[in-house]
Amino acid sequence: MWAIETRGLRKVFRPLMGGNPVVAVDHLDLQVPVGTVFGFLGPNGAGKTTTIQMLIGNVYPTAGKAWVLGYPAGSIQAKKRLGFLPEKFQFHDFLTAEELLRLHGRLARMEPATLNRRIDEVLELVGLMERRKSKIREFSKGMQQRIGLAQAILHDPELVILDEPTSALDPLGRRRVREVIQYLKQRGKTVFLNSHLLSEVERSCDYVAILNKGRIVKQGTLDELLVNRSVVTIELSQVTPTIREALGRIAQKVQPIDERRIVVEVEQERQVPELARAVILAGGELISFQAQRESLEDLFIQTIEGESK
């Protein structure tokens, strides 16, 4: 069983008053294993939020099917087992933090005793314990996002879907979200999240899928996708054609930045020392040599730019 499975999922928005229909999601096949942290990435307008709304049952697919934990998306059985933080969250702001959680606990049909215990737990987790009696209206944007996360995990769901959980958070808040995600993962829960903060995703996700124009263009574990492709920035007193040639024999890609610096990409990590040797042998005067594993951001940008060519 998958935590999330979609087959041929498609959504077309047709404007009521004429205009061109928008294909927001197109033939999406997604399989999210239970117990993983899954990053759902893509540029603005790629269709991430629309996909998530279809998984929740807020939006109906034009075609295709989706299952959540083995139940049809949007069914009561599926909704019982998931927690959700919307992208454009807006909670009843005349309630206090505690009242809002109580409301959501009742809607999730939690036992009163369990609910009281969980309210304390999740407020502690998201760091809003001292503000539990404050009205949501008085909360800052980031605090509202935290209370949103709190209501999403309140009923201890098996699957937590987060649409941009850290967009309004400070670095401390983001770290806290990472901790919450780890806490969920340790307890065997599945987390499906969508974020533009790729370094965050890189730190907390096992799997990623990159969506562009409604279609999946890359999918896999982080380790698979970021295979040993290493990028090295080399600084020399002067970049000569001889050095460039020498590097070119080893590297996959050589890109001079200016007359002193050059960026080199190799297929495998073990080739990095060879680069240093090649520079020296070609008579280069090495000033600095910085190797880094290709980041998710590089992969993302390459993938999306490669698509649009």
Binding site: N58, I76, K79, G83, F89, Q90, H104, L107
Partner: peptide, 14 residues
Amino acid sequence: ERGYLAAILPRPLH
């Protein structure tokens, strides 16, 4: 439009 229902609807309710 104000976004209230999007937060209520994912709850197990018809």
